[in-house]
Design a binder for these strands. Structure first.
Length: 158
DNA sequence: GCCAACGTTGGC
DNA sequence: GCCAACGTTGGC
């Protein structure tokens, strides 16, 4: 299966790349996504071995801050049927799960974040989903070309 | 804190 | 099925 590329957003005040780095095996489940479009990607499209841009949103300096690798493809988000979880959803059950998640493992923390403002200046990224006006998808596809451009930017400005 | 953009809900 | 109201996201 061919490798695919993704971008995942997180608010660093809630969960940052440093938190991922501190987690056991630098691995976490990407729980709590409650948007159908993103759900469909998690459930159907994101597979083990895929690459992820780790993005900090809703913060002082929105930026791609590193990369991760998918170590487990889509499976039901069990937080949805845990009443104590803030991600509880009565309409999701083990028999008929509504929400899905993947596991990711940290690959690299960029020496210098690639800021949103820097991305906007790149002609090669002009079609990137993240840069579309009003784009809010928290899990979104990235073209290989875009992934590579961002890695190069991270390297160049480090 | 403001506000634009988007998604969801629910009355009709 | 329409659409207004509401809630959330996320840059600034």
């Amino acid at each position: 299966m061919a490798v695919s590329y993704w971008l995942m957003k997180t608010e660093p005040g809630t969960y940052s790349i440093d938190d991922l780095a501190a987690d056991p095996d630098q691995t976490t489940c990407w729980e709590g996504v409650r948007n159908y479009q993103a759900r469909n990607l998690l459930r159907d499209e994101i597979h083990e071995g895929d690459r992820v841009l780790f993005y900090h949103s809703a913060c002082a300096q929105p930026a791609v801050v590193g990369t991760a690798k998918v170590v487990r493809g889509g499976y039901p988000d069990h937080h949805a049927w845990d009443k104590r979880s803030k991600y509880f959803d009565a309409k999701s059950t083990p028999e008929n799960p509504r929400w899905f998640m993947v596991d990711i493992r940290l690959e690299k923390v960029f020496d210098a974040p690639v800021k949103l403002a820097d991305l906007r200046g790149q002609a090669a990224l002009k079609d990137m989903e993240l840069l579309r006006k009003g784009s809010r998808l928290s899990v979104q596809p990235v073209r290989k070309k875009e992934f590579d451009v961002i890695l190069k930017l991270a390297k160049n400005q480090a």
